[in-house]
Design a protein around this nucleic acid. Structure first.
Lengths: 171, 171
DNA sequence: TAACTTTGTTAGGTAAATCAAACAAAGTAT
DNA sequence: ATACTTTGTTTGATTTACCTAACAAAGTTA
C-alpha cells in the first residue's frame, strides 16, 4: 500500500525513530540503540539501509529524521500498533504490559485489511447498545467464573435497553 | 510453557509435519519442502535441528514423525492457529484466505495468554444472548453502511430477548 | 539386475541481523 | 587548546535460513 516492503526489523527501527522524533525532535544512534536493546554498531548498519530506501534523512554523524515517505510508513505501522493494543486492552481486557508486548509483534503479522476490520469491529462494539459497558463487565465476570455462572440475561439486557432509551448516543 | 523456545521457522516446520502426519501418516522431505515452498536441501538442515531438539524422529533417508514432545509443541501452535483463524472468520468476518494467511503469521506473534483470552472472548460472544447471530449480522451491516445508518436498537434487542426466552441455551 | 527416475543429502555461497572491539569524530571541561 | 568523555562508525565473526548444484540413496521399470 505504502509501496514498500520492509523487514520486521526495519519496521521496528522506523517506529522507534518516529517515537524519538516525537519526544526529542530528532533521533540519535545512541537512543535508537537503547530503545531497541541493540548495540550502537548495529544501528549504523540499519540506518544506512533505511537511508538507501529513502525513508530517513541521514548522513554519518548527523541527527536522524524521517523523510515524508518514512513518516508515512512509520505512521501506518504505528496505527496498527495502537489499534491492536486498544483491542487487547479494552476488549480482551489484558494488562498494559501484555498488550504492549503482543501488539509490538502482532503489528508485523497483520495485513492492513485485518487491522481495518478490527477498527470497524471496535467501532461497532462502541456504537451498538448491546455491547455497552455492562456487556464488557459481563466478559470480565464470565472469565472469572469460567463461564459457569450465568446471570439473568433478560434483566441484564433490559437494563441496557433502558439506558439506551434515555441516552441513545452514549455508548 | 512447553519448555521450548523455537524460531518462527522451526515452529512452521513442526506445524507442517503435524499436518502431513495427519493426511499421510508420516512426513517426507519432498512434501515438507512443497508445503513450505522451499527446496529439499533447506528441509534437511531444519530436520537435523528439530531432531537435535528431540522434537522429531528422524534418521537420514527415513520417514519423519513427531516425538511426543514435538507433537505437544505442534499441537499448541496448531491450537493458536485454529483459534485465531476462527476469530478472524466468525467474528471479524474475513474471508477464508485472508484469515488463513494472517493466522499463519499471528500464531507466532501472540502469547499463549492472549490466545487464551481470545478463546474466552469468543466463548463469551457465543454464550451471551446480546451477541447472537443478529448482532453479528449487525456488524456486517455496520461495515457496509460505514456505521452511518443506525437501526432501531430497542426493537433489535427485544427480538433477541424473545429468542433467548424461548431457547436460553441456543446462541 | 541394470538403467532410469525420484527423493534426500551435502557443500559452498548469500543475505539479514546481531555482537565485540577497535577506532574516529564530536562535545565538554578545565 | 589540550585532555577526557561520549557518541558514532567500521571491521570481522556468528547465527539463521535460504539457495544452487553436485552427489548419493531408494524406488521403479523394463
Amino acid at each position: 500500500m505504502t509501496g514498500i516492503d520492509l523487514s520486521e526489523n526495519l519496521e521496528d527501527y522506523l517506529e522507534t525513530i518516529l517515537e524519538l522524533e516525537k519526544t526529542n525532535k530528532v533521533a540519535r544512534v545512541k537512543d535508537i540503540a537503547e530503545h531497541r536493546g541493540v548495540l550502537r554498531g548495529s544501528v549504523s548498519g540499519a540506518l544506512k539501509n533505511l537511508a538507501e530506501k529513502g525513508l530517513i534523512n541521514y548522513e554519518p554523524y548527523s541527527f536522524i529524521t524521517l523523510t515524508e515517505k518514512g513518516a508515512a510508513v512509520a505512521g501506518e505501522i504505528n496505527r496498527r500498533h495502537r489499534v491492536i493494543k486498544n483491542f487487547l486492552i479494552h476488549v480482551l481486557q489484558l494488562d498494559e504490559n501484555t498488550a504492549e508486548d503482543n501488539a509490538c509483534r502482532m503489528e508485523h503479522a497483520m495485513d492492513r485489511s485485518v487491522v481495518d476490520r478490527l477498527v470497524a469491529f471496535i467501532q461497532y462494539i462502541d456504537n451498538c447498545p448491546r455491547t455497552d459497558t455492562e456487556w464488557l463487565e459481563g466478559f470480565a465476570r464470565h472469565r472469572k467464573t469460567g463461564g459457569k455462572q450465568r446471570p439473568d440475561c433478560r434483566v441484564c439486557m433490559e437494563s441496557s435497553i433502558e439506558k439506551h432509551q434515555k441516552d441513545p448516543g452514549s455508548p
